[in-house]
Amino acid sequence: MIYRFHSLFLLFALFWTGAIAAADSVAMNRADADAEPMILTTTAPGKNIDQAVTALSQAIVNHNYTFVRQQSIDSRLVPYAEEVRSVRLVYFCNFAKMDRALRIDPRATQMLPCRVTLVETSSGVDLIAVNPAWTSQSMPALREVCQELKQDYLDILDEAAL
């Protein structure tokens, strides 16, 4: 009887520990998520998508990043002639920063290569990026790197929108 009580107690203690740990983790993630916006965005008024891609490519180079490629959102999913022209993805990278991030935590690939999504609207082009500081909320070792990366994104977006 005592033995059964002990085993039930252990079961309850383990379950409770796990539940508290999970709740803490969720709460921490929620606090981080609340602190960081998911999206970094700016608008380039009066530009068309080609002009915005050109401006963004120049801003990328000016901030010591390498342009990797651009593609439509449905590239290779539909025939080229049918691709959506108003939404483009631009990928870029700084290889030294990539190397540093991957050495800290291989999950940094979730932010690689850097990407900006351009959406043409009636008044200009919206430039949108997923905030790396938001993505890294469950990767504490990457926080510093991702804050730097976020600042780079903001600088690049600002310059591209001029």
């Binding site: 252990l10 383990l14 379950f15 796990g18 539940a19 999970a22």
Partner: peptide, 12 residues
């Protein structure tokens, strides 16, 4: 019991 509890912890 340990295994079940551990599994629950992991799943959470």
């Amino acid at each position: 019991h340990f295994v079940v509890a551990f599994g629950l912890m992991l799943s959470l």
